[in-house]
Design a protein around this nucleic acid. Sequence first.
DNA 1: GTTATTTCTGAACGATAGGTGTGTTATATC
DNA 2: GATATAACACACCTATCGTTCAGAAATAAC
Lengths: 189, 189
Amino acid sequence: MGRKKSYVRADVLEAARDLFWDKGYEGTHLQELVEVTGVNRFSLYAEFDGKEGLFLDALRLYRDEAEEAYRSVLLHEPLGLPNVHAYFDGIKFSSDYAGCFMINTLSEKHVVTDEAFSAAKSLSLKVEELFLQNLLAAQAGGHLHDRDATALARLLGVVDQGLAIRGIVSPSNKHKAQIVAQLSFLLAD
Amino acid sequence: MGRKKSYVRADVLEAARDLFWDKGYEGTHLQELVEVTGVNRFSLYAEFDGKEGLFLDALRLYRDEAEEAYRSVLLHEPLGLPNVHAYFDGIKFSSDYAGCFMINTLSEKHVVTDEAFSAAKSLSLKVEELFLQNLLAAQAGGHLHDRDATALARLLGVVDQGLAIRGIVSPSNKHKAQIVAQLSFLLAD
DNA sequence: GTTATTTCTGAACGATAGGTGTGTTATATC
DNA sequence: GATATAACACACCTATCGTTCAGAAATAAC
């Protein structure tokens, strides 16, 4: 019994995520969240736990979706270098690309809660691990002989994060293609 | 004639830069700037042009100093691959590393003024250009045969930016050393 | 010392921040 | 339809935001 909610929690979270993604935690004001989500301040407070809680939930939504996107490419069987190339080839910048929400949050380290910062960190580490699995599979297949797979996986993670930054500066998919093409020299046997 | 200023402009700018660097534009409040610089609100307004002007000046200070640091390594004669390796080998993370102020500002794209965003962008492009000069010199010396030097320079810029992000997540200089060691495979002939 | 000029101090400005209380409206159960 | 319950709308709270003003303090020229 009681009145029905006039919003769908998942939709609200998506809208909030997009706004936080664009403007960051401090740069996003509750009034804007009300306008974007169509949900009143009070209801936002009741459903989530204020601005902090909403931010954290939005961040986790992004993280979970992003992680799933990474997994769908980087856990494709059989594991190996083609997965790595497929991942980097698959990156696409839109003209209004706002960077990676996780990275934006890492930049706001001293502004967001520790919980939010940790959530943002976790994706970075997960991605490195996914790269590593493919590199180890490649080595098992006779490639990348005597290479430090862990360090290489971390470098790939670094490149991934760097691409997200460069996409803000210049969301050129042509440049991106030329850049990731250079990775074949890094991953040659 | 008139009263003397009780502060040194350059010192104020340094303190402001450090705070903005840590907290970002929106995350930094005027009251904190007053406390950190030791200069009253009114004087901050008279000397700079409000929060926006102070941010822009602090950003340009960082950019100019950073650019000089890049140039001192990457324009070392003779140009070539050793400069590139020297640059990446020379990166050091402190335990409280707050990332690169320029990158943090790029992440705040939709929060800062266009002028500030442009200033942040300019460093990225300059760094790519410096890498390129060294790669072209290497090619002139018979290295990196038939490689796309422009794309490779951009990749090195991407790695540089990615390292700055990774430094926030894990300011481990040991990891960093292992990661940049992998670059020798990318820059092999 | 007097005066003109500049900076500094501290308070106050209006606006808006995030957060909350109150009463109204809608729904589910009986 | 009556009633209990949950979510709604809207106004209001205090705190603080960036900004500014009026007067005190300090300095340089005369």
